[in-house]
């Protein structure tokens, strides 16, 4: 029983990091209707940025997180410039929904993710970069029968704060209003005077900030940062987004938590090397039996 409680706590904190990445996917899919394959690399870059800040200045965790937020926003804006804007030459309805545009941005973000990953590998080497012990967030805390680490609590707390902040931004600010307007109907938003290009840049900045923070939290939790670390969490966050119904943020968060918990509980039954299977299995089952996602509304053919 204790073992299950323990795995539940770990699963929740892992699920929260998936949720942070999945929100970035969801926001960007909402406004552009395309998948950003370079989102996993934003997570990696966030982790490396955190590592650099910690090894050069050794500031408190809060300052690291703020620096990583800034780096994430910067990376997001740059990514939009390089991989998405050049392919958005026309803004009429047909080309916004066209397959050519969708596939070319998919390939360009894939290409940029290869370049970013390989550049990091050339710059830092392919071995694990170890995080200084003082900066790691894995001091154990005994809670009755269960032992969790302060990292679990920090991840849960930071993620919850960021989710609340995101809801505030989306509901109560001008930027959030325009993001919601564009994801509802890009052309309609344009007609009533929303600057669509600016909104897209904002969306990338916000989504990438969340992804970068997830990267640095996970990096400091496990104490290992490497160039290829973004791929698996990226795929799992993508699974959470598809399960949640593609454009539903609460759906993505719930499914990310579900995924994290299922994965960590699965280690009770099978060896942990197979736990990645859970996510891929969920994805296939969702796509075949609930193609609209578990929380998704009506949508075009998938």
């Amino acid at each position: 029983m204790d073992f299950y409680l323990q795995q539940l706590a770990i699963g929740l904190s892992v699920g929260m990091t998936y949720a942070l990445i999945a929100i970035g996917f969801t926001l960007i899919f909402g406004v552009l209707n395309v998948v950003n394959f370079a989102h996993g690399e934003v997570y990696t870059i966030g982790a490396f940025a955190g590592l650099l800040v910690v090894t050069t200045f050794a500031p408190p965790l809060l300052a690291v997180l703020l620096a990583v937020l800034a780096v994430g926003a910067f990376v997001g804006v740059g990514l939009e410039r390089l991989a998405f804007r050049p392919f958005r030459r026309f803004s009429d309805e047909a080309s916004l929904k066209s397959r050519a545009m969708r596939e070319s941005t998919l390939m360009s973000s894939l290409a940029l993710s290869i370049i970013a990953r390989e550049a990091l590998e050339i710059a830092f080497g392919s071995r694990f970069q170890s995080v200084p012990v003082a900066a790691m967030i894995n001091q154990p805390i005994a809670l009755g029968p269960v032992t969790i680490t302060n990292g679990d609590l920090i991840i849960l707390g930071v993620a919850a704060l960021m989710l609340i902040g995101l809801q505030y931004v989306l509901r109560h600010t001008q930027v959030g209003l325009s993001i919601r307007a564009v994801s509802n109907n890009p052309l309609g938003a344009k007609y009533v005077g929303v600057d669509v290009d600016r909104t897209i840049v904002w969306t990338f900045a916000v989504g990438s900030m969340l992804g970068a923070v997830a990267g640095v939290l996970v990096g400091f939790y496990y104490g290992a940062i490497f160039a290829n670390m973004g791929f698996t969490p990226g795929v799992k966050a993508f699974v959470a987004m598809v399960m949640g119904g593609l454009s539903s943020i609460p759906g993505a968060v719930v499914c990310a938590l579900l995924l994290g918990v299922c994965e960590s509980l699965s280690t009770a039954f099978v060896s942990s090397v197979w736990s990645d299977m859970v996510a891929y299995g969920f994805l296939i089952v969702t796509l075949i039996f609930f193609p609209r996602g578990i929380f998704g509304g009506a949508r075009e053919r998938v």
């Binding site: 090397v273 299995g281 796509l287």
Partner: peptide, 28 residues
């Protein structure tokens, strides 16, 4: 057989997942 109903990006993601599953099987 089961994935042919899917179109565009959903099909792409399904093949990605299946590719990763086969890779995990080879690895583990």
């Amino acid at each position: 057989l089961p994935t042919m109903r899917l179109v565009s990006i959903y099909f792409a993601v399904a093949t990605l997942a299946i590719g990763q599953m086969l890779y995990l099987i080879m690895l583990n």
